[in-house]
Design a protein around this nucleic acid. Structure first.
Lengths: 356, 356
DNA sequence: TGACCGCATGTAATCGATTGCATCCCTCGT
DNA sequence: ACGAGGGATGCAATCGATTACATGCGGTCA
């Protein structure tokens, strides 16, 4: 016996169990197609040799990779990393591997996706980046090879893709209504990055709630943002400099809300005494900042799971309907300490200005 | 011409440019081995047909997948998601794909890694999970197929793997010394999860600094933890219940420090007035909690980049040395608002108890 | 001039599994 | 007793690229 063993192939298993490779293959993928006795003999041979099927060979023959590609704008964002976590779980459960493509945008993103697919590395694509050019996406659905594709988080209503997302507009409306319900009239908004679909939807929900309540939206109370803490912090600086401030602010996501809170603190503006703040996402950290953040919880875990499941259904041809399916998950308001009725406690000097 | 085009293969390119498939293959991977004119003809043919090499076929023949597997304990942890981000960047730069395996531990983790490798899906493994059984790891380095492996973050000094990590022990020592330097004598510690290598190193660093300064370590000032906010919060509850409290606490990571801060706040204990807190990692959020967290910054970006680079070097046989290489990156103390000299301001009732 | 060298290219084997088709054999029905 | 039917299995083609080896050609040098 030689000391350097090579990794065993189906040939060895066949030889060892005295059958052909065809039978071994069948025993492994369609056990009911071989007899009891050979099945046992083969599984024993597999055990002894330590055989593991070669995925490249299988892929080549079956034109299938049992792998999905997840394209994300920014993995470092906890919002996405939670989703990725649940995608990975679901995928592994269904026997798929998960390849990641991060910072996924720019001119060649469409080509990159196409190449991954055409090179037979992946069977389908889960896209979380709304900034990918629509034309490039359409290219993927054409010939050759319409790529199994599920777009998540981002809504592209007119495009023929399956989408999974949350009820952003309605959720933003609810968040704003929560503030209105507490008695706030002057309510500001920290926007997301320009050009992002979510930014637009969340702002629209905010505006809708304000309009429905007959409240005016002041343009100097709309802060530009970027879904990150620094942007929220910058908004906080502007807020502090304002002569006439709103008594509440709805931030387009938790990170910007947190950055906003930290800026407020630097300026000695207290939350919720001087200003109530609502975030969006319910990141793990939201419950642990000071004050704990009221926020719209996004069902991130479910979103990842459902998106991955839908994609695999498409890949395996189990989505019979050729019509794109648009799934919408509900958000949930989580009330914590960052919101309260306006001027709840003794009127602070800050607030007095407004009431003059 | 038919409307349903199949995805083009090297055969089509060969036919189109009037050469054999061998020449096409050479033109694509070793351009200098074919003549100028045919090279041009072939690249034109590639352009026209829209040819993309089939990776499964290439993998099968070359026994190479151009993919690495990254095994992580918990993707949702921002510490890991930042590292994963930089791994992905480096890998793409060098032409590799990144497959992820999350929540990677448990009995079959060794087998899962082995299967990924033996099935030819990945060329090597980047392991971030120190809880994987050492015996299972050793199995990977044996016959058949010694798996290219780089272990990151976790040190297994006696094991024959390349490792990349940070100077945990020294960093923990520095963090503790920072508190000592501020004049603290009573310093507590929030540990990481039991059994984790990092937990041990960070605690050891803490103990070393204490011992060097001639300070006693009180066992009721050592809180058990788990690298997450809930554990830090629980530690905070215990801390608040203490009759005799330390004036400073070194937490084994930022998340537990943040959870600790939030519990302190609930109990009306002020940081840094009543207690100084040092974290570990420097997550993005650390600068934005209240008060901003003093912490040991871990070079996460560099760590991911270097680990991925080293793994690919091993895969490509560029690490000539058979000796395992242990790389250690330096951490950096980031001083923010959560630390100050003890009893800095007027002595609070909380502190008075200790001074009685 | 003829032996030789090296470059560009072609031929065909090869990687390892899957699968259409053929074969063998056993059982059952008439 | 004989053919049909069907279950178990084997044979060999196949997926698409890479690559060892062969070939042919033009040029160099003795």
């Amino acid at each position: 016996m030689n000391l350097i063993k090579k990794t065993p192939t189906i040939q060895e298993v066949a030889r060892f169990s005295g059958v052909s490779t065809a039978t071994v293959s069948r025993a492994l993928s369609n056990p009911e197609r071989v007899s009891e006795s050979t099945r046992l003999r083969i599984s024993e041979a597999v055990r002894v040799t330590g055989y593991t099927p070669n995925q490249s060979a299988r892929s080549l023959r079956q034109k299938t990779a049992r792998t999905i590609l997840v394209a994300l704008p920014d993995l470092r964002n906890p919002f996405f990393s939670t989703i990725l976590d649940s995608i990975e779980r679901e995928a592994v459960l269904r026997g798929y591997g998960v390849l990641i493509a991060n910072r996924f945008s720019g001119d060649d993103s469409g080509r990159r996706m196409r190449d991954y697919f055409l090179s037979n590395r992946v069977d389908g694509l889960l896209l979380f980046d709304g900034s990918v050019d629509l034309a490039q996406l359409m290219m993927l659905t054409g010939n050759p090879a319409p790529v199994p594709l599920v777009v998540a988080c981002e809504e592209i209503p007119t495009a023929p893709f399956h989408t999974v997302r949350t009820d952003n507009l309605y959720a933003a409306e609810q968040a704003t209504r929560h503030l209105i319900g507490l008695g706030h009239h002057g309510i500001g908004h920290i926007r997301g990055p320009v050009g992002n679909v979510l930014t637009g939807e969340r702002e629209a929900g905010y505006r809708k709630a304000m309009a429905d309540a007959g409240l005016a939206v002041r343009s100097d109370w709309i802060f530009k943002g970027a879904f990150d803490m620094d942007a929220g912090h910058a908004a906080g600086q502007l807020f502090a400099a304002l002569a006439d401030r709103p008594t509440a602010v709805f931030a387009a996501n938790d990170e910007s809300a947190i950055g906003f809170l930290s800026a407020l603190n630097q300026h000695g503006i207290a939350c919720p005494r001087d200003v109530s703040v609502v975030g969006f996402d319910d990141l793990g950290i939201a419950a642990h900042v000071l004050p704990p953040l009221t926020t719209m919880r996004q069902p991130r875990e479910a979103l990842g799971r459902i998106a991955a499941g839908a994609l695999i259904d498409v890949i395996e041809g189990q989505r019979r309907s050729r019509l794109p399916m648009h799934m919408v998950l509900s958000s949930e308001l989580i009330v914590r300490g960052s919101t309260s009725p306006p001027a709840h406690r003794a009127i602070a000097p800050e607030a007095a200005v407004q009431l003059q």
